[in-house]
């Protein structure tokens, strides 16, 4: 790519980016606007551009939501589950992906397709028998059914890791083996350090997956003190049918921590991606 793109090219790029970004942001502005309206304004038709900004900003909607439901408790539960799942899925999935990429074993490609096939299985197939299994183990209404499976590798993360590993220089790994490095050493000292981008990507996806998971907590968590943010939002949705403004305020509160977290991860992501050893 040239050091400096030509002027028309840059104009096109920025125009496209601005258009797309506006399309992405508008629903959020709409969400924010709705969360700052009172009950009457939120369902009033908008006739002019000025109407987009509510005449009075009702910031008290946010404390009102926090008073109505114990969001902080739900947040604590969600974050705890997410951290455990990230650790579990990065460790187990990268090991499995290493096996599939660098170990020359007959039929490994077929076995890999088997792993992939598990993603294609609609979650509903394993849901009912899975529920029975966890009930037998006495794990219902604990976080364990949501966390423990992550430590056994997720096909989605294995796929991601493998896709990335396939792009790594095989010669580097072969050279390390010839020098007498054990597989665990190669994994820990060569493959993992080069895999920062994909580790961050997998963590990101695990985190967002946990944050968004609705079905899992719905099935496995009964008592309110174990609820996640999703269950909280859903029950809130049922309770306040007419107060769209409070519902939107609740969604905004749920979104803010993730946006902040993503901004922080962003830097890691770029640094990791730039430092990847593919070039060397």
């Amino acid at each position: 790519m040239s050091e400096k793109a030509s002027l028309p090219q840059r104009v096109i790029t920025y125009t496209l980016l601005i258009c797309l970004a506006s399309a992405m942001l508008l629903p959020f502005l709409w969400l924010l606007r709705s969360s700052l309206c009172d009950e009457a304004t939120v369902i009033k038709e908008i006739e002019s551009v000025a109407d987009f900004i509510p005449p009075v900003l009702h910031w008290e909607n946010f404390p009102n939501v926090l008073k109505a439901i114990p969001l902080l408790m739900y947040l604590k539960n969600t974050v705890f589950i997410a951290i455990c799942v990230i650790i579990g899925s990065v460790l187990s999935s990268s090991l499995c992906a290493y096996a599939f990429t660098f170990c020359h074993v007959p039929y490994r490609r077929h076995l890999f397709y088997c792993v992939l096939a598990t993603v294609m299985l609609p979650g509903v197939v394993t849901m009912i028998p899975g529920f029975i299994l966890f009930r037998e183990l006495g794990w219902i209404d604990s976080f364990r059914p949501l966390i423990v499976p992550a430590f056994f590798g997720s096909a989605f993360a294995i796929f991601l890791f493998r896709q990335f590993f396939l792009g790594l220089p095989v010669s580097l790994i072969e050279a390390a083996r010839i020098d007498g490095a054990t597989p665990l050493q190669i994994y820990r000292l060569i493959v993992l350090p080069m895999s920062r981008p994909v580790i961050v990507t997998v963590s990101l996806f695990s985190f967002v997956g946990c944050w968004n998971d609705f079905m899992g907590p719905l099935i496995f968590l009964n008592s309110k003190e174990n609820w996640t943010l999703q269950l909280g939002l859903n029950s809130f949705r049922g309770e306040i049918v007419d107060q769209t403004n409070l519902l939107m305020a609740c969604s905004v509160i749920i979104l803010i921590p993730v946006i902040v977290a993503f901004f922080c991860l962003q830097r890691y992501f770029i640094r990791g991606a730039n430092m990847s050893g593919v070039k060397g």
């Binding site: 797309l20 942001l25 629903p27 967002v208 609705f214 999703q230 859903n234 946006i259 993503f262």
Partner: peptide, 15 residues
Amino acid sequence: WRTIFYLPTIVSGVA
């Protein structure tokens, strides 16, 4: 830019 474009995927199923 990246955050703007990624933002929508953060919005959960229910939200």
